[in-house]
Computed example of a mutant assay.
Amino acid sequence: MTFKPLLTGIAVTGLTLGSLSLASVPAHALSIGSQIDAIWFGDASTNNFDFATFFLNSGPEPGFTFVTGKGDIPTGLQFATIKDIPSFSAFVPIDNFIYFGDGVNYNFSLSAITPTISGNSLSIALRGIFADGTPGVGTLTTQLDGEPVRSWSATVTAVPTPALLPGLLGLGIAALRRKDGEPTEENA
């Protein structure tokens, strides 16, 4: 029994679906792996995070952060605001969680968090979407050492959308076929 017709059908279907999904990606989408690295100070507890302003004040106003980027995000030092996470247990999505300004395609909105406390360390898994529609995941870490203001760092990276995965699967199958020496449509 040969699986060649089946694999060919899967590859063609994957490439077709991948092509259709690529048509719906924004024209100026961030490339996969583009990244925001942010640092500053804040006041963390076991159920919330209050990001400090430039002058290290806490309160209802958005906090401040120094940011560097990778990929499609500028690599030089930038400034951005970052909004507080008022409750881990009753989390509500936060638009423009990391905000660089109007019309910037790498503003990041936070849609889900998963906080983890280990000893006096707090790690928050972040999931959200950049302003251009590219999904992003990351981590924010700090210490819970009883001090009112402590340093924190965060990284958010652009990741592929589930809609792109069938196309990537099809490309992978085609590459495997070429590696195994099976004829492809080009050299059959």
Rank of each mutant, 00 (worst) to 15 (best):
residue 37 D to A: 09
residue 137 V to I: 09
residue 99 Y to Q: 03
residue 77 L to Y: 13
residue 184 T to K: 10
residue 68 T to Y: 00
residue 64 F to Q: 05
residue 76 G to S: 12
residue 34 S to C: 09
residue 76 G to T: 11
residue 7 L to F: 15
residue 164 L to M: 11
residue 122 L to S: 01
residue 151 S to I: 13
residue 71 G to I: 05
residue 74 P to K: 04
residue 125 A to C: 06
residue 161 T to L: 11
residue 82 I to E: 03
residue 41 F to N: 10
residue 25 V to D: 03
residue 161 T to W: 05
residue 145 D to W: 08
residue 122 L to N: 02
residue 127 R to I: 11
residue 135 P to I: 03
residue 85 I to R: 00
residue 100 F to C: 01
residue 45 S to P: 03
residue 83 K to I: 03
residue 172 G to V: 12
residue 62 P to Q: 04
residue 165 L to K: 10
residue 141 T to R: 12
residue 162 P to N: 11
residue 169 L to E: 08
residue 143 Q to S: 15
residue 149 V to M: 11
residue 15 L to Y: 06
residue 52 A to Q: 02
residue 172 G to E: 08
residue 178 R to C: 09
residue 65 T to G: 09
residue 167 G to C: 04
residue 24 S to G: 07
residue 112 A to R: 14
residue 185 E to R: 12
residue 4 K to W: 10
residue 169 L to R: 02
residue 125 A to S: 13
residue 145 D to L: 12
residue 19 S to H: 10
residue 66 F to W: 10
residue 57 N to F: 12
residue 84 D to G: 08
residue 99 Y to E: 07
residue 49 F to G: 00
residue 61 E to D: 14
residue 106 Y to G: 01
residue 56 L to F: 15
residue 171 L to G: 08
residue 91 F to R: 05
residue 77 L to S: 14
residue 56 L to G: 02
residue 75 T to R: 15
residue 179 K to R: 15
residue 163 A to P: 02
residue 78 Q to F: 06
residue 178 R to F: 13
residue 134 T to I: 02
residue 59 G to S: 08
residue 95 D to N: 15
residue 159 V to A: 02
residue 21 S to F: 15
residue 121 S to L: 09
residue 65 T to D: 06
residue 150 R to A: 08
residue 136 G to R: 01
residue 19 S to K: 06
residue 60 P to G: 05
residue 41 F to W: 09
residue 118 S to P: 00
residue 49 F to P: 01
residue 94 I to N: 00
residue 16 T to D: 04
residue 104 V to P: 04
residue 115 P to M: 03
residue 51 F to C: 03
residue 58 S to T: 15
residue 127 R to W: 04
residue 7 L to H: 08
residue 123 S to L: 08
residue 30 L to F: 03
residue 130 F to A: 03
residue 158 A to L: 05
residue 62 P to A: 14
residue 180 D to R: 13
residue 63 G to S: 12
residue 17 L to F: 10
residue 8 T to D: 15
residue 104 V to F: 06
residue 29 A to Q: 09
residue 72 D to L: 02
residue 76 G to F: 11
residue 97 F to D: 01
residue 132 D to Q: 05
residue 26 P to G: 12
residue 91 F to D: 04
residue 140 L to R: 02
residue 115 P to S: 05
residue 86 P to T: 08
residue 41 F to G: 07
residue 155 T to H: 07
residue 134 T to D: 02
residue 46 T to H: 09
residue 66 F to I: 14
residue 56 L to S: 13
residue 84 D to R: 08
residue 48 N to K: 11
residue 27 A to I: 12
residue 43 D to A: 11
residue 174 A to F: 04
residue 56 L to I: 15
residue 176 L to H: 07
residue 34 S to G: 07
residue 184 T to P: 02
residue 57 N to K: 14
residue 116 T to Y: 00
residue 139 T to D: 14
residue 3 F to Q: 14
residue 118 S to R: 09
residue 29 A to M: 05
residue 85 I to L: 04
residue 80 A to F: 06
residue 39 I to C: 06
residue 111 S to M: 10
residue 44 A to R: 01
residue 89 S to V: 05
residue 138 G to Y: 00
residue 91 F to T: 04
residue 177 R to P: 01
residue 180 D to F: 13
residue 153 S to K: 09
residue 48 N to E: 12
residue 13 T to N: 07
residue 34 S to L: 02
residue 99 Y to D: 11
residue 119 G to N: 04
residue 62 P to V: 03
residue 160 P to T: 14
residue 23 A to R: 14
residue 63 G to T: 09
residue 94 I to Q: 01
residue 66 F to K: 13
residue 5 P to H: 12
